[in-house]
Write a protein that binds this DNA or RNA. Structure first.
Length: 462
DNA sequence: AGCACA
């Protein structure tokens, strides 16, 4: 019904409030960054960030209404939009007059944690992965997982409330390391509270529940991975069926990744037919279509976990798409169809039979970061298409023990509790040291908005 | 890019 009183306010008729509503924040935005953005305009008395389905909204409450007004009016007339990590932030008055923070109300510490694993489906995170992550804090007695409206959840029973709270404090708001997750999962944040339970009643060992105190508990036959379950590898990761189309998610995207950049990178393995870029979960993803599965598999194998840019920037995570033929605009800033263009567009050499790219840079340049650090203004191109330096050795050992490489975690006694809400801090160093991808001579973002950090502007993540 | 569910 069309009520006149309870009607949501129209965009341009919002009454000022000392609470501001900020949208389009990066999902990993911290309270500090929020305060940094807002404090020039007045005293901030309260914040609430990572709000909304995508965790990309926030609220900021000023001490005084005029301070909120000054921020809104400043950015209303500013030529530079409000930004956090390069993303334009949209600011408006909240339709509420104060931030309601119910921080852990009635949340009594117990020995059982209720963990909501956000952004994943039940099949994405195995119970073994959950066990691995939480075992770092003490003996995990029992785990029960289930799906609710809130998403995929798990009850995790520890010996006592002290252990449980240690796990909660360390892991709440953080993310399960990527290497423990299927490649298509962009982010996976843990929201942890205490359960009212003290002892879980686990009936069967199954893919949904586990009792580690009772090895004699029967295995539920109906709960064993059956025909409807996705193919699961030995490491418990879901395996997508192979495809000629790769899904790339790009982590730590400090520089603009354009269609052209992706084309350069992925063409090293064969003719790229189509590319489409889109936003998902606040991050960037792209679909890259090859003519065949084999080429896609080679590209996936070679590029997975590698970074487009030196220094851990624009790290690629690849999985097989369900698509086989993309329907994209022939030429836009977010997509390209190379199959219908003029002859000669497929100028990049086909991949050799060995599968190794033929356009790679000599290894000496692998650690040459000039393309980035001098702002892309380097006089000599870092990469020359005519220079056919192939160094397979570089690619034969892209992984280093302990790196986030997907196979080594089982051996590692210490889980990477760099499990940061943003980028695993240890990850950057590993990449820099060993997991680098050759710089394909890409000039970042064609010198557009996303200029690389200059000397006076250090990268954010170090 | 569009208002918080603990």
């Amino acid at each position: 019904m069309s009520s006149s009183s309870g009607q949501p306010q129209f965009r341009y008729t919002q009454t000022p409030s000392k609470v501001l509503h900020l949208r389009n924040l990066p999902w990993e935005c911290t309270e500090e960054e929020l305060v940094e953005l807002c404090k020039p305009f007045g005293k901030i008395v309260n914040t609430k960030c990572n709000v909304g389905a995508n965790r990309n909204q926030a609220f900021v409450e000023y001490a005084d209404l005029n301070q909120a007004i000054s921020m809104v009016s400043y950015y209303a007339s500013s030529s530079e939009p409000a930004q956090v990590r390069g993303k334009t932030v949209y600011i408006q008055y909240s339709n509420r007059q104060e931030i309601v923070n119910n921080k852990s109300t009635g949340d009594v510490a117990g020995n059982v944690l209720l963990v909501t694993i956000e952004g994943v489906e039940a099949g994405d995170v195995s119970i073994d992965v959950i066990h691995l992550v939480f075992s770092a804090f003490g003996f995990v007695h029992k785990i029960a997982t289930f799906e609710k409206a809130a998403g995929f959840q798990a009850l995790i029973q520890f010996t006592d409330a002290e252990t449980a709270s240690a796990a909660r404090n360390a892991l709440d708001g953080r993310s399960i390391p990527r290497y423990l997750l299927p490649e298509h999962v962009a982010s996976c944040h843990l929201r942890i509270s205490y359960s009212a339970h003290t002892d879980l009643n686990i009936k069967f060992q199954s893919h949904r529940s586990r009792d580690y105190t009772n090895p004699y508990l029967p295995v539920n036959p109906s709960a064993i991975e059956g025909t409807l379950q996705p193919t699961v590898g030995a490491d418990g990761k879901k395996k997508e069926p192979e495809s000629n189309v790769l899904l790339a998610s790009i982590e730590n995207m400090q520089y603009a990744v354009t269609v052209d950049v992706l084309h350069t990178v992925f063409s090293a393995f064969g003719a790229v037919q189509k590319i489409a870029i889109f936003e998902k979960n606040g991050g960037m993803q792209a679909l890259i279509q090859y003519p065949d599965v084999t080429t896609a598999a080679v590209a996936k194998e070679a590029l997975e976990g590698h970074c487009i840019y030196d220094g851990g920037y624009c790290k690629l995570h690849l999985s097989y798409s369900r698509h086989t033929d993309l329907n994209v605009k022939a030429h836009s800033d977010k997509s390209r169809d190379y199959t219908i263009s003029d002859a000669g567009i497929l100028s990049v050499p086909q991949s050799s039979a060995s599968g190794w790219p033929s356009v790679l840079q000599p290894a000496s340049a692998v650690y040459n970061s000039s393309a980035i650090s001098d702002g892309g203004l380097s006089a000599q191109p870092v990469w020359d298409a005519n220079q056919q330096g192939i160094r397979p050795g570089v690619y034969n050992h892209p992984q280093v023990p302990g790196a986030y490489s997907g196979q080594t975690y089982g051996a590692s006694a210490v889980p990477p509790y760099s499990l940061s809400g943003t980028i695993p801090s240890s990850s950057a160093g590993l990449i820099q040291a060993s997991q680098q991808m050759p710089p394909y001579g890409i000039q970042p973002g064609a010198r557009q908005a996303a200029a690389p950090p200059s000397a006076g502007q250090p990268p954010l993540y170090f």
